[in-house]
């Protein structure tokens, strides 16, 4: 059990770095201003969650967005899908209630009938997959510093942006210290097992002290190099006219697809 825990912890850390390494690549998608991408993601999510609880067919065309962005941004589908699954348990819990409580029959094509609860459950899962993957493709195409710059451009307080960047960077410090401690512990324990349960509190406490002291030293070093908390540097973002036009177009497309059931229209042509 302990081994699986290390595995999980290690895997989470690997995940942490994998998205960031994707985000630092250079595709046309990566070059779009972060503000535009954040706003577009927001418009998309609002459009998706505003769908009615039974409107599966109307919602389906929205799947095009994460798929297209993932291929344009060279994001592996497998990674995207695996990460999306993390969000499912709680949603599935809320959705299962629909299956139990909503038994009104709904007729599908060819006289096939399912209950309303099954349909709304499917819609809820689809909404989750779409919204989560939309956020993930944003994170995979936008480096953290660019997101921070975007947040500042949106008018968020300087101190929040600073805290945002610091949390992310100090996570690396924390992980480094944790890895060092775990290595030292494992090398010194004769049976080579992972940290014993009784040693966890001591390890956690030491980890805090070591990470805190190192964070102070890192901050001291930053100050020596001229870091000033009151003047934090973020990239200047200038959205081009084309980008703004593209955003408006995208939002309009979302709105149009929200009002107009594309699946039904396409189906109507062929049947």
């Amino acid at each position: 059990m302990s081994a699986s825990k290390t595995g999980k912890f290690g895997a989470s850390l690997a995940n942490l770095r994998s998205l960031e390494s994707l985000a630092t690549r250079d595709t046309p998608l990566h070059r779009i201003s972060p503000t535009i991408k954040i706003a577009a993601t927001f418009a998309y999510i609002v459009a998706v969650v505003s769908f009615g609880v039974y409107d599966f067919s109307g919602l389906l065309p929205f799947a095009a967005y994460p798929i297209i962005v993932a291929s344009a941004g060279e994001i592996p589908y497998g990674l995207l899908f695996k990460r999306t699954l993390i969000a499912l348990p709680f949603v599935a819990f809320a959705g299962t209630a629909n299956i139990i409580f909503d038994r009104a029959p709904v007729e599908l094509a060819f006289g096939l009938k399912i209950t309303g609860g099954m349909l709304s459950f499917a819609v809820l899962i689809l909404k989750t997959l779409l919204t989560v993957s939309a956020v993930l493709v944003l994170a995979a195409t936008t480096p953290l510093n660019a997101i921070a710059s975007g947040l500042k451009r949106f008018g968020l307080p300087c101190i929040l942006v600073l805290q945002f960047v610091m949390t992310w960077r100090y996570l690396e410090v924390l992980i480094d210290e944790a890895e060092r401690m775990f290595h030292a512990y494992v090398l010194r324990s004769p049976d080579g097992k992972f940290v014993k349960f009784k040693d966890w509190p001591m390890m956690a406490g030491q980890l805090f002290l070591r990470a805190y002291d190192r964070a102070e030293r890192v901050y001291g070093a930053m100050q020596c190099r001229g870091f000033d908390a009151r003047r934090i540097h973020t990239h200047n973002i200038r959205e081009t006219g084309g980008e703004i036009f593209g955003l408006i177009l995208f939002a309009a497309a979302c709105a149009a697809l929200r009002c107009f059931n594309l699946s039904a229209a396409v189906g109507g042509i062929f049947s």
């Binding site: 610091m166 996570l171 990470a211």
Partner: peptide, 24 residues
């Protein structure tokens, strides 16, 4: 943020950062 700006002590920055990382 406004309350913090009033009496902001920059020496608290590393503690804030590392505590954020810890809770994360």
């Amino acid at each position: 943020a406004r309350k913090m700006r009033k009496d902001f002590d920059p020496s608290r920055i590393p503690l804030m950062g590392i505590m954020g990382a810890f809770v994360f």
